[in-house]
Every structure is written in C-alpha cells, then in structure tokens.
Simulated assay, not measured.
Amino acid sequence: MPLWLNILVLSLLVYLLISLLVYFLQDYILFKPEKLPPDFQFAYENQETEEYNVETRDGAVINGLRFKAKGPRGIVFYLKGNSKSIKGWGKFAVDFTRHGYDVLMVDYRGFGKSTGRRTQKAIKRDMQLIYNKIKEKVSEKYIILYGRSLGSGFAAKLASMNNPRMLILDAPYYSLSKVGKRYMPFMPLSLLLKFPMPTYKWLRYVACPIHIIHGTDDKLIPYRTSVKLSRIKPKQTTLYTVIGGGHKNLHAFESYHKMLSDIIKSRPKEVDLTGSSHEYAQSSKSSNEAN
C-alpha cells in the first residue's frame, strides 16, 4: 500500500475516533454538575426559601428552590449555567428579591438533588413542566424568564412557547454548535452534538420583550454573539453592554446591577418618532449630506 494511502487511512481512523469521543463524552464536556445528598439542607443568609420536588412523567425528580420576597411583584424563573448546583447559584437570587421579585431556581437532571437521564428534549420538557406549575399560581404577565449562559437557550425556548412578561438573556450563545466550532472547526458538530441548543431559532418565535446582557471581554462566548442575536428580533430586543465584563463576573460590575434594575422596572411603550430624524434616516446616498 502506498505511503500516501497509509497516511490517508490513518487520518480517517483518527478523525473517526475523535468523532466518537466527542459524541459519547460530550455530556461530560458540556455539564459540570455538583450532586447533593437527598437530605442536604439549603441555607442562605437573610433569604427565605421553600424547597420543591416535582416528579416528571418519566419518573425523574426536579429539585428547586423558591426565594421569597416580601409582597412580591412577580416571579423570576432563573435558568442557571452548566456547572455546580443551585446550592451555589442561589446567592444570585438577591439580585431580584431586593427588587420585590420571588425567584425560582431548579437543578437540571443530574445536578444537585435532581435525578433522571439528561437529554436536550427531557430538559426542555422539564422546564416547561416547571413553568406550568408557576402559571398555576402566577399570571404570565408577572413572570420573568432569566437565562444565564447554558440556561439562555432553555429560557429562549420557554419564551418561544409561552407568554412571559419578558425574557432576559445573560451571556447567551447563538447555538452550542457554533460555540463548539470555535474549538473544533474541523468536526461536524451539527451532526455530533446531542445538545445543539439553537437559541437563534427559538428567538424567532419569542413575542415578549427581549433583553440581552453581555460583557465585552467574554472569552467563552464572545460579545459579538449577542450582537448577532439582537438582530433576530430588533424591534423588541435591547442589548446591554457591560464594558470589561467576562463570562463569569458580570455580577461584580456596578453597571450590570444598574442594567438589571432598569430592565426589571421597565414597561413596554411606544416611541413617538414624530418630528425626529427617523423620517429621513434612509434618505438616498446621492442626496446632499451635512458634514
């Protein structure tokens, strides 16, 4: 067998091996769960909480916490990132309870006290089940969906199928396939990924106001991703930029908390463009322009 053919066969075998590894090990690459014993007791300073366990139709149990505000104005369904459990993520509930909103956080399958086999379809179904439970007690006009990193895709999917007051995306991705392409551009990730998470597709069907927050120094999911997402439904989307913000430290920026406060307190309203430059903003390039 010619040398070039040996090299080609060997290259194909290596490529096939890498593809198989990506397919079978991606769950360990994408998810970094922290598992908690069933008798673990959650405790947060100056926070009143109530623990819930919801059983799914396939027998899994989804564990969650409700952080209670005094005289709540609504509820934030907070979909967290891909690591640890709500044990650690719970500390971020104060960013909403201090504004008078209850916060519901849940652990995805295999995280914390939650059980069940993890698939994209199963998690989407679980989140809809939890959303339905919220709707039994709270009108949708008082529900805010907040998706952080990995949770941004699930939050977008929920918003596309329901009618919450608003959708807030924190450091969202265009799709996990796109994120993966940055690190393995030579792999057919659209075929290999079990969790493609096409946020961009789901956003097309979102009817509520969309607020996107992203840091300019995010090395994991670049800021340009949110710029691209903001163009999908531009009339109902607002992009908030945290100058210098990374992927995991937005909460350390004062500007982030001001943005969050403005978003939560915002009310949809029409803008009167009468007498503004909007009416001649699309004028022909051939016309005289003032310098």
Rank of each mutant, 00 (worst) to 15 (best):
Y23E: 11
I264S: 02
T225N: 08
L260R: 04
D272T: 09
D262F: 03
R148M: 07
D217G: 02
I213S: 11
T237P: 10
S277R: 14
M127E: 11
N132M: 08
P37S: 09
Y280D: 15
Q282T: 08
K269P: 11
F186C: 12
T56I: 09
K157Y: 07
N163S: 13
A207P: 10
V271A: 13
E254T: 11
K285L: 09
Q282C: 02
I134Y: 00
T241L: 03
Y52K: 09
S85R: 05
K233Y: 05
F186P: 11
E45T: 13
D272V: 13
R117W: 00
F253P: 00
Y78C: 02
P72L: 03
L220C: 14
V103Y: 02
D95E: 11
M184N: 07
L169G: 04
K137Y: 11
K113F: 01
T241Q: 03
G59A: 09
K228F: 06
Y174N: 03
N288Y: 12
Y183P: 09
G71Y: 01
L260M: 03
I243T: 15
R204I: 09
P188V: 07
E34Q: 12
K135E: 06
A122F: 09
Q236D: 08
R117D: 00
N53G: 01
Q120W: 13
M197I: 14
P38D: 10
W202C: 00
R204L: 14
I62H: 05
D58N: 07
T237Y: 04
L176Q: 06
T274F: 14
D95R: 04
M259N: 06
P2R: 15
L30S: 09
L203Q: 02
G245K: 09
L145C: 03
P33A: 12
R57V: 05
T238Y: 03
K32V: 07
S160R: 11
Y223E: 05
K87T: 00
A171S: 12
S226R: 01
E50G: 05
L169N: 00
C208D: 14
V14S: 01
G71A: 12
P38T: 06
K35L: 14
L65Y: 00
N53F: 02
P234R: 15
A93V: 01
E289R: 10
W89D: 00
V94G: 03
P72E: 07
L21P: 06
D27E: 15
G74P: 05
P268H: 10
P209Q: 11
T225W: 02
N249G: 10
R66D: 05
V54G: 00
F96P: 01
L17K: 05
S11V: 06
L79D: 07
V76K: 08
K201I: 09
K113T: 06
V227A: 11
V179S: 14
D107P: 01
K235R: 15
S160Y: 10
F77T: 01
K228W: 04
P234F: 15
L3R: 14
V61W: 02
K194N: 09
L150H: 06
T97F: 08
S266C: 12
S175P: 12
R57W: 00
L229F: 06
Y15H: 13
G215Y: 06
Q47M: 11
S284K: 12
A252R: 12
D217W: 04
V94C: 01
R57E: 08
F42K: 06
G116I: 04
Y223T: 01
W4Y: 09
Q128L: 12
